[in-house]
């Protein structure tokens, strides 16, 4: 059902809330769960050197387009491939089968695939933070006004990420490439997620 599509999000603190609520009430309840996470993404962005120097329109555009991807990176550790479970931020674990019944299909499989690949890289906190900054500062998001400024910041962040990865893993030359290849995977997940959201609202 459309209700289950919404409630199956790992950020939903209350996925099995009582029925009989209006769509508006469901959205408002869910917003209480994801709003703090979105605020944390914004706080993270504010601490990226150079982010606050971008025009406000571009800051908002990057955050609107990239928040899902940042959260996906951040919550990849909630996806346990071995156990085939997802731990919601409420602490409750759901099996793959339960989540499928809640309306998560292709998106769920893709999230598991991504999480497995990212978790296998065993990034340090510093590497993960810098990678997350690279995910967020992408000059090819639509509606960016000052592409040159965003591109410049993006290049600086990519160079810093490359230097950090090379310093931490000097004998693994393909590691940086593997990490950058996660960017198109995140775009695909973002698109699948957007389709899910749209289908809910249309229904």
């Amino acid at each position: 059902s459309t209700r289950d599509v919404l409630l199956a999000c790992p950020m939903n603190m209350n996925p099995h809330a009582g029925s009989g609520r209006t769509a508006q009430e469901i959205w408002e309840d869910f917003s209480l769960s994801f709003t703090p996470a979105v605020r944390e993404v914004v706080e993270f962005a504010k601490h990226i050197p150079g982010f606050r120097d971008l025009c406000q329109h571009d800051q908002v555009t990057l955050l609107k387009a990239g928040t899902f991807e940042v959260l996906m990176v951040r919550f990849a550790s909630l996806f346990n491939v071995k156990e085939q479970t997802v731990k919601f931020i409420s602490g409750t674990k759901y099996s793959l089968e339960e989540l499928r019944q809640m309306g998560m299909g292709d998106l769920l499989n893709s999230m598991f695939d991504f999480s497995e690949k990212l978790n296998n890289l065993s990034l340090t906190e510093e590497e993960l933070a810098l990678f997350t900054a690279v995910v967020l500062v992408s000059a090819d998001r639509s509606s960016i006004k000052n592409v040159d400024s965003v591109e410049q910041l993006q290049e600086t962040l990519i160079r810093a990420l490359r230097a950090l990865i090379m310093k931490n893993h000097p004998n693994e030359t393909s590691r940086f490439t593997k990490l950058l290849l996660k960017l198109p995977d995140l775009r695909t997940l973002n698109n699948l997620h957007s389709e899910k959201l749209l289908s809910f609202r249309i229904d």
Binding site: W27, E28, S31, F34, T35, V38, R39, V42, E43, K46, Q56, Q59, V60, L63, K64, A65, T67, H193, S194, L197, L198, R201
Partner: peptide
Amino acid sequence: CADPASNLGLEDIIRKALMGNIETKVE
């Protein structure tokens, strides 16, 4: 609306968080 971010009220949350406004409300 064709913008999923707007559907979630995401822009509103982002703008207020960027401006340091603690109180946010999703439409």
